[in-house]
Write a protein that binds this DNA or RNA. Structure first.
Lengths: 209, 209, 209, 209
DNA sequence: GATGAATGAGGATTCATTCAT
DNA sequence: GATGAATGAATCCTCATTCAT
């Protein structure tokens, strides 16, 4: 029904089978900002509409809303984990750590602070799964923290869990200063970076102290 | 608002007034932790039940759920404002500021991080009202920040808005480490205090800088 | 807003509180024939509409569809239980038994064979509750059956459970011959009574056998 | 059903035909018990899965769910019709009739009482088609009933329609006592046979009456 | 003023059916 | 012809809000 021509066609006619995987991507891509903006209360119909698919398709890919939320979180966790790996490869643990935080927050800012959005309801059904993510992250930064402690660059009383919490706290700053609330993107960016500087300064081991 | 008349009233109207005020208090008292725990999704019926009143009474005092949420926020804002007043009376702005943050967070920890819970949906209908609160708070700390800057104890690039944001960010830490998630109250307390120390250290003007 | 006149008013204005109980009745009354006719698949909205209430009210009285179905069954079970009591008071067990079956089926015919409708899905979630009903009924007729056996009027191999099954089987006849399928009410009535006669004849202990 | 031709065919078209027929059989075979167990509410996807085909294939063979239901009913009607033919060949109409009922119920017990399951919703869209089946069956037993009446072995007031109803009523007994509900297969079998005996006894013309 | 029953729009989820591959 | 992904109407249930008592 379609002669494989050499010219790049308008893409429409050859839809469907290969699109299945594409749809999953599309859904995740729209779901992340949607949940970040509207919270977990966003209508599944709206998510489907944003992704340009029917609700049925949405539910084929994610059995429940909870599943979709989980998947979106996983996405950000993956990003963070990757960043941690990069950080671990850095000689100076403190430099790695600072870069890690910066990279993570940049991602969150771009992704509309998803992790943040989810963490907002620690009592939800997803609590267990979410805790698992947190544990995973904590283990991932444990080495980095240990090295920084050994190198004497990180406050002695800071734990891996603290770092994860700090990221989430800064995520909140990103969320609250999101451009669109009357703030320019540049302002928003400058604000969370300023906060990050403050926090990093606080995290740094004091010479004399 | 009512001059105690000299005539011996039938006692009825007075009593009603008193009950009504009582109910309003009760509702606010139970609503704060309820929203903090369950998010804005808590059922109004549940709030009414917790307060020991009927839904009708709840709605007599707060016309919409939004109104109730606002009132609950106002409560915390009031607490914060009061703390700001005390801080302003302090000679050394930095000391006042540190005490202010500590007091505010203690209140939030006790109130289950209500402000925090609400800030989670900056896109909600309450956005305007919420922004108003923020503005109010920012103005309230403006003097304190100015004095600290003048006294050279606070980082030059920190704005009043930043302080409010920091409080909210730390509120998130409180929320995420809430006792009950498998953490002891003492742990929870220690955690946010540690974070506060870090942040205060970061906020402090560096000698050389 | 309403002067308590002496004349019987059109009933409309003084609705509500006392109506609460009334509504439950109304719902049960319309639900029975609705389920009998349309099976368990009937839309709850339709039931509500038939009862002249909103869905909310329906759900206030019956937490789930399952609950409503149960309640409807209980209704018929109650009718049957009452009939059993009357039958137990009869001197001649056989006469009582015959009257019991006749009375029960008359009720079922009037109620549009509800019990029948429900029994159609023995695998449904309500299985446990339904089995409980059946057990209850079986115990209820046990005495009657024992007496009939002792008086030599009932086939020796017939058990209480058999009687319950027979009623359900005849309920199916009632259902299949329901007036409206092109049959007159008189026809429908005559048909199940004919079947009852046949069955009673079959249940009667044969002189020689 | 297919004479092996002498010419060396391309094998393709033939094969397809065979597969198609095979699929139709498979679908009917799994659909019958599926509907009997789960009622008409069974998911088409589930039927397809049980048959080991895709939904598309299912829909190629049966345009709508209704069609599939009809086809399943036809299957049982065919079985019954065949049994009627055998019964008609019997000299003594009563013997034939008794054998007919027994054979029919045995089939139903084996097929998980499909007819029964379907008859449960006489108001469904399939009403017309179902009535047609019933008419067909009634005509089929009409001769047998007439002969039995003439031979004085069947109650005078029993009609062909009554026999069909009795079969369905007994089908209900089979369904309600289905093994698996905590009953052994032997028990289930014994129960419906006991009921059949009772009914046959009731159907038999009384000598004196 | 207080109460809680009633309301119904709205949201999550299922499932018959279509259609590109 | 077979497949199974996509679709969206339909269904159960929740919950903010109103209003008769």
């Amino acid at each position: 029904m379609e002669t494989p021509g050499s010219a790049p066609q308008p893409a429409r006619p050859r839809r469907q089978r290969w699109d299945a995987a594409r749809n999953r991507e599309r859904i995740l891509q729209v779901a992340a900002p949607a949940f970040a903006q509207g919270g977990a209360g966003v209508d599944m119909r709206e998510v489907a509409r944003l992704a340009g698919v029917g609700v049925g398709t949405l539910y084929r890919h994610f059995h429940t809303k909870e599943d979709l939320l989980q998947a979106v979180v996983q996405q950000d966790v993956a990003a963070w984990t990757e960043a941690v790996t990069r950080a671990n490869a850095t000689e100076d643990a403190w430099t790695g750590l600072a870069a890690l935080l910066e990279a993570t927050l940049t991602t969150m800012a771009r992704h509309r602070a998803l992790l943040d959005g989810l963490a907002a309801q620690p009592e939800a059904d997803s609590a267990a799964a979410f805790d698992a993510c947190r544990d995973h992250l904590e283990r991932a930064v444990a080495d980095l923290v240990a090295r920084a402690h050994a190198q004497g660059t990180l406050r002695a009383d800071v734990t891996p869990a603290d770092l994860v919490l700090q990221v989430m706290a800064l995520g909140r700053v990103i969320q609250l200063t999101a451009p669109g609330n009357g703030r320019s993107p540049a302002d928003a960016d400058a604000t969370w970076r300023r906060h990050l500087t403050v926090v990093l300064d606080g995290l740094r081991a004091r010479g004399g102290a």
